[in-house]
Every structure is written in C-alpha cells, then in structure tokens.
C-alpha cells in the first residue's frame, strides 16, 4: 500500500505491505519529532531557539548536537562544499536532517520486520535492504525502480534506474524545484549543474554529496566520484548529462516484452 503524508515542508510517500500499516504511526512520529526539533519555519523548534539566541548550543539536546556534529564532519569531508551554516552564520541542518529522518524511519521498518518498503521524502528515496536481493525467497524481491526527474521538463523522467542492495538510496539536489537554494561559498556564478543525483548505500551520504556537487561543480564531482563509493548523474545548464560508470550500468534497460 501507498501512504502519503505532509512533513518537513514537503511530502513523504511510503510504500509497504498493508499488513505492516500499523508501523506508519512510528514512522510519522519520527518525522514529526525531526520537524519539531529542526524546522527553522517553526519559531518554537529547538533549532529556531538556537538561531535567535533563546537557547545556547551548550544547552542543546543530544540529538541536535549529534546531527550538528555529523554535518560538521561532512563539511570537512567535502572541503566545505556541504555546510550546516547559513551565510549569516546560523546553524541550518536542513541539508542533513531530512535524510536522517528517512534513515531512522527505514531502520524502524526493518527492525519491525517489514520485509519490503520504500520511503520517498521530497524526492530522496531509500528502499529496504531486501530490495533486489537475489537470495531472498520471497516473490516480491524485485529491484525497485526509481525515476529521476528531468529538471528541464517536470512532466518527464530524465531516466530511471534500479535500486538494489546495497545501493539502496538516491538523492537529488538542484535548483529545478526550489530555486537556487544551495549556498555556494559566496560564488555569484550560476551553478554549473542544475541537477545532481547521487546513488549510495545510505541516504545521508547520497543527500549530502548531491548537495556538495551542486555547490562545488566539476571539481566536487570529480572529488566525490574518486573518494566515495557512489554513482552520480548530473545535468548541466545546457541540459548535457554526465554519469559515472556505475550509474550507467544501473539504468533500466529497454524492455523486451
């Protein structure tokens, strides 16, 4: 069954067998908790209180500090292309907490024993570890197919690919939907890539690196594909595509039937 819910300023689509529908409460609770703590649109959220000085970082919750420190590690690893700070210095964990919420929700479903699921929050997708696994004797172990939106034509797919274990996560960043919302170190040049999709073994890596490549352009693309075990496809301003070999081999082939 397909369950759709508004959360974190966007929409979550969750697919799971209807026998496991009761687990949706736990998943929604995770999303609500993340929103309540990290939304900068809710004046009463913990992060809003830190942003405007009502709460000091030393009084912050363990969960906020853990997300912040994880984001800082990613900032170092990406040479600053990913950053948990807005240009004005305020802490903005938007770039990581949505992916962390998906990660937690997926862990919840797997821990509950749900055999196959997919979670899509605002275009970032994670599928169950069983997806596409060949050693599972269930009839529903088909690899999950995900499409990638075409940034130049919102009603069309750019391409589609198979998400199979361990490549369970795909995230897409860009300026197609929300305007040029990724801060690029003070650069005023238009971004080289209008859309970047990263396929990885976990959703936080996929999400952070997609953002880092949009921010850092070609150098970041080369650095990421050299240093991380991920597959990438990019669309530049003129519509030209670049893809890693792994991405190309995961493209859905033409159907014979």
């Amino acid at each position: 069954m397909r369950h759709v819910a508004q959360t974190m300023g966007t929409v979550a689509s969750i697919e799971l067998p209807s026998e496991w529908a009761s687990e949706l409460n736990a998943v929604e609770r995770i999303f609500r908790e993340v929103e309540r703590r990290f939304s900068l649109y809710l004046p009463g959220s913990e992060l809003s209180m830190i942003a405007d000085g009502r709460l000091s970082l030393s009084e912050a919750s363990d969960s906020l500090l853990s997300s912040y420190s994880r984001a800082l590690e990613w900032r170092t690893a990406t040479g600053g292309n990913f950053s948990p700070h807005r240009p004005d210095g305020a802490i903005d964990l938007n770039g990581i907490v949505k992916a962390e919420a998906i990660e937690q929700a997926g862990a919840q479903l797997t821990a509950a024993g749900c055999p196959q699921w997919s979670i899509n929050v605002g275009g970032d997708i994670l599928v169950s570890p069983t997806s596409g696994a060949t050693n599972v004797a269930t009839s529903s172990s088909e690899p999950l197919r995900a499409g990638i939106a075409d940034p130049h034509n919102p009603t069309a797919l750019l391409c589609s690919l198979e998400l199979r274990h361990p490549r369970r996560a795909i995230a897409t960043s860009g300026s197609a939907q929300r305007g040029d919302h990724i801060w690029r170190g003070g650069s005023t040049e238009p971004a080289q890539f209008v859309q970047v999709s990263v396929v990885a073994n976990d959703i936080v890596t996929a999400d952070v690196l997609a953002t880092a490549i949009v921010a850092g352009g070609q150098d970041a693309l080369d650095g990421v594909s050299d240093r991380w075990d991920v597959d990438v496809i990019t669309v530049d301003r003129l519509g030209a595509l670049h893809a890693t070999p792994g991405l190309q081999s995961s493209l859905v082939r033409a159907q014979i039937t």
């Binding site: 997919s118 605002g122 275009g123 995900a146 499409g147 797919l157 589609s160 960043s173 300026s175 939907q177």
Partner: peptide
C-alpha cells in the same frame, strides 16, 4: 530507453 520504464518513485530536487 530507461525513460519510459515503469517506476514506483521519482527522485528530484526537493518539492
């Protein structure tokens, strides 16, 4: 060839 495949989810920049 992959554009017309049946997919169950779409990845895109956050809507």
């Amino acid at each position: 060839a992959s554009q017309s495949a049946q997919v169950s989810n779409v990845s895109g920049a956050t809507y």
